[in-house]
Write a protein that binds this DNA or RNA. Structure first.
Length: 587
RNA sequence: UUCCGGGUGGUGUAAUCGGUAACACAGCAGGUUUUGGUCCUGCUAUUCCUGGUUCGAGUCCAGGCCCGGAAGCCA
C-alpha cells in the first residue's frame, strides 16, 4: 500500500527540482546517477517541515532509481544528543522510507575533514585567527560595508600548520582561536568574508567522546559530507542559497566531488507553530505535554493524534516544491487526512456528551442486537452487532427543546431515526427543579426496525446512540488547532544568538503562549462508547459516526478507554450555525 | 542601505518553442444519502505595476514596486 504504481509515478506532477534531476540523468551528469540524502541534526524531534525534506529527498531518489542516505549532522556536541538519533530513525521509518544500511554521521568524517583543512592551510586558503568572537563580528563589516582583514590573515603556512595542530591538541583555550577560510573580507556575500571553519570546544561529543576539541562549523562541514558520500543532488531549503558559493569554493579548492545543491522553500503552515527551536520552547515551558503532544506538528505528535503516514505523504505531494515562500492552509492537510481515514476507518458509535433517552413503549429488560455496517467505503469490512435496549444515550446537542430553523434533529414531538435501529419520537423533556435537562421520554415504532418505515415515511435526521446498560465509559480528548485563526497573522519571534538565547527563549515562551489557542484541548470524561470497543488497542483508529476520527491513546486501558480526536468530520450543520448566527427563527 | 532569491485566484501549485491561464484545497449553490460524512454536479475567483518587442506575452526586454533570506565560533 506504500508502493505507488507506475501510473501514479507518471501522473505525479513534476517540479523544478525533478526537472533538473531528469535533465542531469539524460545528459549523463554524474554518470546518470541520482544520490540524495536527508541530513537532520539530532537536536530535536522531526516535524512536518522535516517531512517535506524527507519526502523530497527519498522520493526523488526512488523515482529516479537512485539512493538516499540518512545522515546525522552532528557537528556541534553542545546541541546534539544520542536519544534523538534513534527517534529520528523511528519517525522516518514510520513515514515509510528506508535508507538501507546507509546511516551515516558527520562525526565519522571528522578525520577526513581535518585532513582537508590541512590541505587548505597548505594551499594558503585557510589560516588560524586569534580574534575573539566579538572581534570577528566586528571585522566582518555589514551588508553595506566591507569587512576588514584579520591581523592574523597573513601568517605563514608553517605557522598556521603548527597553530592548527595546537588547536587540535588542546593547547588553547575555548574560543581563543579559530581556523578561517582565506577568501575575501570585502565580498558582497557575507558568507564569503573569511568564514570560520573550526572552533575550539571542550565538549564531549555523543559519538566521538573527547577525541576532538575542535569541531567543524556547518558551513565547512556540510559540503564535505555530501561530497564524501558521493551525493549528486544536495536538496536543501532556501536559507542555504547564500551559502552555496562558499560550499562551491571549498569543493573547488579541494578539487573533490562536487554535488549540485538545489534549494527549495521550506514548509510553513497555518494554525500551528513550526521550527525545532519554537517547539523546544513549547515543550520546555510546559505549554504542551511533550514532544508527542497531539497538538504539535511533530511526527510523534501527529502519530499519537492518529495521523497516518499516507496522509502526510499525500499532503507533501500536493503541496508541491517551489522556491516561493508560502504558507500552506492546514485545511489541505486535514483534507488529505480525512480522505485517507474515510477509506480505512471502521465506523463505531460513541456518545461524547450523553443525554439519556427512555423508550416508554419498549419492553423493560429486552435487548436486541442490531446489525451495523463497519465501513460503507469498504464492504469487505463486514458488519457487527450493536445492543439496543430501553434506555439509551444520545448526544446532548442532538436535542433542542425549541429547535431553530434548519435544525432537524430531535425536538418535542419530532421523529428521528436511531441509526441501524428504530424511528423514535420525543414525547417529553424531563427537567429537574432547576430546569436542568435530565432525560428524554420517547416512544419507538416497532415497525421501523433496522431504520426503514414500511409506510415509506421519512425522517430528516439519523442519530447515533449507545445502549445505556451496555455502553463502555471512555475519556475523549478533543484537539483543536494549536494556533487560532485570529492569531495566525502574528509572527513567532526570531530565536537565536547563543548569549541571549536563554533570555530570549523565556520571552519567547510568553510570546508563543499568547498566540496559542486556549481551547486546543478539551477533555471529556463522561463519554459512552459501544461495547465493541472493549479492549481496543492503542493506536487503533475509528470513525465515531457523525463526530470525527478518533484513535486509541497510549494511555488507554481496560478500566478506562482513552481516545484522541484526530480530526472532525466536515460539518455542514456547524457551518450553517456559524453562518446563521443571530438568525434564530422560532420553531 | 548592499548581495542573493522570489512575485500566477482566498491558499498551494501547473502551463512544451512565445499560442484558449489549468489542477487541488477553501468558499458558495444544488443532487444522492440510514453519518448534516462520503460521493456527484455546477459556480465564484488568478498572471505585482508601467512601458517595449511581437499577429500574439504569465513566459522575452527595460524600468519600477512589493515580499523573503543574509552581518552565529547555530544548523
Amino acid at each position: 500500500m506504500n508502493e505507488r504504481t507506475d501510473t501514479d509515478a507518471e501522473e505525479r506532477r513534476t517540479d523544478f527540482i525533478r526537472d533538473i534531476v531528469a535533465e542531469d540523468v539524460h545528459s549523463g551528469k554524474y554518470d546518470g546517477r541520482v544520490h540524495t540524502r536527508f541530513p537532520p541534526e539530532p537536536n530535536g524531534y522531526l516535524h512536518i517541515g522535516h517531512a517535506k525534506a524527507i519526502c523530497i529527498n527519498f522520493g526523488i531518489a526512488e523515482e529516479f532509481g537512485g539512493l538516499c542516505n540518512l545522515r546525522m549532522d552532528d557537528t556541534n556536541p553542545t546541541r546534539e544528543e544520542a536519544r534523538y538519533v534513534e527517534a529520528i530513525q523511528e519517525d522516518i521509518r514510520w513515514l515509510g522510507f528506508d535508507w538501507g544500511d546507509r546511516l551515516y554521521y558527520a562525526s565519522d568524517y571528522f578525520a577526513q575533514m581535518y585532513a582537508y583543512a590541512v590541505q587548505l592551510v597548505e594551499q594558503g586558503d585557510a589560516y588560524v585567527c586569534d580574534l575573539s568572537a566579538d572581534e570577528v563580528r566586528e571585522h566582518r563589516g555589514t551588508p553595506t560595508q566591507p569587512g576588514r582583514d584579520s591581523p592574523y590573515r597573513d601568517r605563514s603556512v608553517e605557522e598556521n600548520l603548527g597553530l592548527l595542530e595546537g588547536m587540535r591538541a588542546g593547547e588553547f583555550a575555548e574560543g581563543s582561536r579559530t581556523l578561517r577560510a582565506r577568501i575575501d573580507m570585502a565580498h558582497p556575500n557575507l558568507n564569503m568574508r573569511d568564514p570560520v571553519m573550526y572552533r575550539i570546544m571542550y565538549a564531549t561529543h555523543h559519538r566521538t567522546g573527547d577525541d576532538w576539541c575542535i569541531y567543524p562549523t556547518y558551513d565547512w562541514a556540510h559540503g564535505l559530507e555530501d561530497s564524501i558520500e558521493g551525493i549528486t543532488h544536495s536538496l536543501c531549503s532556501i536559507e542555504f542559497e547564500n551559502h552555496r558559493p562558499l560550499y562551491d569554493w571549498f569543493l573547488d579548492r579541494l578539487g573533490i566531488h562536487h554535488p549540485q545543491q538545489i534549494e527549495f522553500a521550506r514548509l510553513e503552515m497555518t494554525n500551528t507553530i513550526m521550527g525545532t527551536r519554537h517547539l523546544r520552547v513549547l515543550v520546555g515551558e510546559g505549554l504542551v505535554s511533550g514532544w508527542d503532544d497531539p497538538r504539535l506538528p511533530t511526527l510523534r505528535g501527529m502519530r499519537r493524534r492518529g495521523y497516518t503516514a499516507e496522509a502526510i505523504r499525500d499532503f507533501i505531494d500536493r503541496v508541491g516544491v517551489a522556491k516561493t515562500a508560502s504558507v500552506v492552509d492546514v485545511a489541505l492537510l486535514e483534507h488529505c487526512l480525512r480522505e485517507d481515514l474515510n477509506r480505512r476507518s471502521p465506523r463505531v458509535m460513541a456518545v461524547l456528551d450523553p443525554l439519556k433517552v427512555v423508550l416508554a413503549n419498549y419492553p423493560e429488560g429486552r435487548v436486541e442486537q442490531m446489525e451495523a455496517v463497519n465501513n460503507p467505503e469498504d464492504p469487505s469490512a463486514g458488519t457487527r452487532m450493536v445492543p439496543f435496549s430501553r434506555e439509551l444515550y444520545i448526544e446532548r446537542e442532538d436535542f433542542m427543546e425549541e429547535p431553530v430553523r434548519k435544525f432537524y434533529r430531535l425536538a418535542p414531538g419530532r421523529e428521528v431515526r436511531l441509526r441501524y435501529a428504530y424511528f423514535i419520537t420525543c414525547q417529553e423533556a424531563v427537567r429537574d427543579e432547576h430546569g436542568e435537562l435530565l432525560e428524554l421520554r420517547c416512544t419507538y415504532d416497532p415497525a421501523t426496525r433496522g431504520g426503514d418505515a414500511p409506510d415509506g415515511r421519512k425522517v430528516k435526521a439519523t442519530l447515533h446512540w449507545v445502549s445505556a446498560a451496555h455502553a463502555l465509559p471512555a475519556q475523549v480528548r478533543l484537539y483543536g488547532h494549536l494556533v487560532p485563526d485570529e492569531q495566525d497573522e502574528a509572527c513567532p519571534p526570531a530565536l537565536w544568538r547563543d548569549e541571549q538565547e536563554q533570555e530570549q527563549e523565556q520571552g519567547a515562551g510568553a510570546d508563543l503562549q499568547n498566540r496559542l489557542n486556549p481551547h486546543s484541548l478539551e477533555v471529556l470524561s463522561g463519554c459512552r462508547v459501544e461495547p465493541s470497543l472493549a479492549g481496543a488497542e492503542p493506536g487503533a483508529r475509528y470513525q465515531f459516526e457523525r463526530k470525527g476520527y478518533f484513535c486509541v491513546d497510549a494511555a488507554s486501558s481496560d478500566e478506562m478507554l482513552v481516545f484522541n480526536r484526530t480530526v472532525t468530520l466536515r460539518d455542514r450543520w456547524r457551518r450553517l450555525q456559524k453562518a446563521g448566527d443571530g438568525t434564530r427563527a422560532s420553531p
